[in-house]
Simulated scan of single mutants.
Amino acid sequence: MKVLDLKCSHEHRFEGWFASTEEFESQLSRKLIACPVCSTTDVSRMPSAPRLNLSSARGEAAPQPAQPAAAPKAAALQARALQFMRELIEKTENVGERFAEEARRIHYNEAPARNIRGVTTPEDAHALLEEGIDVMPLPVPDALKEPLQ
């Protein structure tokens, strides 16, 4: 199993596990690898040095590779953003293409009050705002639209 360090064109960094380097290249060429944060398939492999645990056989501690100072902060921020999105998805009802209609029904007390999410056009979102119905666009990464494995 090969564990590769990857990044997308938006500088989101993540790991990918592949049976071989050839399998990674195959999936990359078919656009099957997507960023778990923004869902772009414009992904590249980060340079990494192979790590051999030879010193552990002699009882010595293996040196850890140095990481850029910003990497832990960026990773923590990405993790918080994904956690927020997961919680938002868990606590809202997906009404899909009926979002504008359902938001109006809730606003005018024609349907039970609840937190909803869905899809609407920019024009419909603007019309909802003009009616005094609070809406907020929130792009959900494709990785979070399906159950995580």
Rank of each mutant, 00 (worst) to 15 (best):
K2L: 08
K2P: 09
L4I: 06
C8H: 00
E15M: 13
T21L: 11
F24E: 04
F24R: 08
E25R: 12
L28R: 09
L28N: 08
S29C: 02
L32V: 04
I33P: 00
P36C: 03
V37G: 00
T40I: 04
D42K: 13
D42E: 15
V43H: 03
R45A: 11
S55W: 10
S56L: 10
A57W: 08
A57I: 14
R58F: 14
G59F: 01
A61Q: 15
A61C: 08
A61L: 12
A62E: 15
P68N: 07
A74H: 08
A76T: 12
A76W: 09
Q78A: 13
R80D: 08
E87I: 05
L88S: 07
I89R: 08
I89C: 02
I89D: 05
K91V: 06
E93D: 15
G96E: 05
E97V: 10
A100I: 03
E102N: 07
E102I: 13
A103H: 02
R105D: 10
H107D: 05
N109Q: 14
P112M: 10
R114K: 13
R114N: 09
N115C: 12
N115F: 10
V119T: 15
V119N: 10
T120I: 07
T121K: 02
P122V: 02
E123V: 13
L128Y: 01
G132E: 05
M136S: 11
P137C: 04
P139G: 10
P141E: 00
L148Y: 03
